[in-house]
Design a protein around this nucleic acid. Structure first.
Length: 286
DNA sequence: GATCCGTGGCA
DNA sequence: TTGCCAAGGAT
């Protein structure tokens, strides 16, 4: 029994946010939808979209029955719209292979589009109470600081990280599931990336990073993501035009959205290749 | 393992 | 003002 468990679990019981996908009545589908939406996207932005999504498509079958373009439009401005496509494809796979029920095992979840190691472990843990190592950016940062004394975790998950996370995972299945979400919440609310609130941390007395005097990150420089003039910006502009239009959009309206013709054509081709847009003659639509 | 893939709030 | 970055996945 790690000395970290009780302080973190008690802290979570007192400070956890009330989120729709954490309600006792929340379905596994609600949890899966939330996890796809939360990939690289803040909770505050996900909340309203998740609510509307579940009202419109309360089960995987409801979503699978509609064209993927409807999912992309309902995704709104969450970003990375390919996730909407993957969620739609996941719903279809759940209907076809799992009789419309979100599977409850890590291995089965991992076969779904858009579900990788993190999401499979998270859904198995949060929705079904299974015991899994759930390694997201929050958990990695918390454990990296408390156990390894480093401000930020390595670029990619190392074997040492996974072993440490496995060692501190509670043995009891139900406790492990709560632990997983509790450590994640601690990272989201207290042990944050920019300005951690260490004075509010339940495990500050056991934190290796704190004990070492908060040494600054000394690893390889983390590359920022370029934006201005990139294909990502171009694709975003084009998608915004199509998303805000009901029917097909004539090419001329996309010309205005992105003046550089070569880049615009390249992005239209890649969006089409991704399945995010459909082309018919001189018009495009979701 | 390195890259690519959106968006908008914030220090 | 602008770089940073927020519950990753696919290739």
């Amino acid at each position: 029994m790690s000395a970290l468990h009780d302080p973190v679990l008690d802290w979570y019981a007192a400070h956890a946010r009330d989120l729709p996908w954490r309600e006792p009545s929340a379905s596994p589908w609600s949890v899966l939808v939330s996890e796809l939406m939360l990939q690289q996207t803040p909770v505050a932005r996900v909340l309203p979209v998740h609510t509307q999504w579940l009202e419109r498509w309360p089960t995987p079958a409801h979503l699978a029955a509609e064209p993927s373009g409807e999912a992309v439009r309902a995704w709104g401005r969450l970003g990375y719209p390919r996730r909407a496509l993957r969620l739609h494809a996941a719903a279809a796979a759940i209907v076809e292979r799992y009789d419309g029920e979100v599977p409850d095992s890590y291995d089965e979840l991992l076969t779904l589009p858009g579900v990788g190691d993190y999401t499979a472990a998270a859904v198995a843990s949060f929705a079904f109470g299974r015991r899994h190592v759930v390694l997201d950016t929050n958990v990695r940062r918390v454990l990296g600081r408390v156990l390894a004394g480093r401000e930020f975790p390595p670029t990619s998950v190392t074997r040492a990280e996974r072993e440490e996370a496995t060692e501190v995972l509670p043995d009891d299945e139900a406790t492990a599931a709560t632990w997983a979400v509790a450590v994640m919440e601690l990272g989201a609310l207290v042990c944050t990336a920019a300005s951690p609130r260490c004075e509010d941390c339940p495990v500050r007395e056991q934190c290796a990073w704190r004990a070492a005097g908060y040494p600054a990150y000394d690893g390889p420089p983390r590359r920022g993501q370029a934006w201005q003039g990139t294909d990502r910006q171009c694709r975003g502009r084009l998608m915004a035009v199509l998303r805000d239009s009901d029917g097909p959009v004539h090419r001329s309206r996309l010309d205005v959205a992105w003046p550089d013709a070569d880049q615009r054509e390249r992005c239209l081709a890649s969006l089409s290749q991704d399945g995010l847009i459909m082309r018919k003659g001189d018009t495009f639509r979701l």
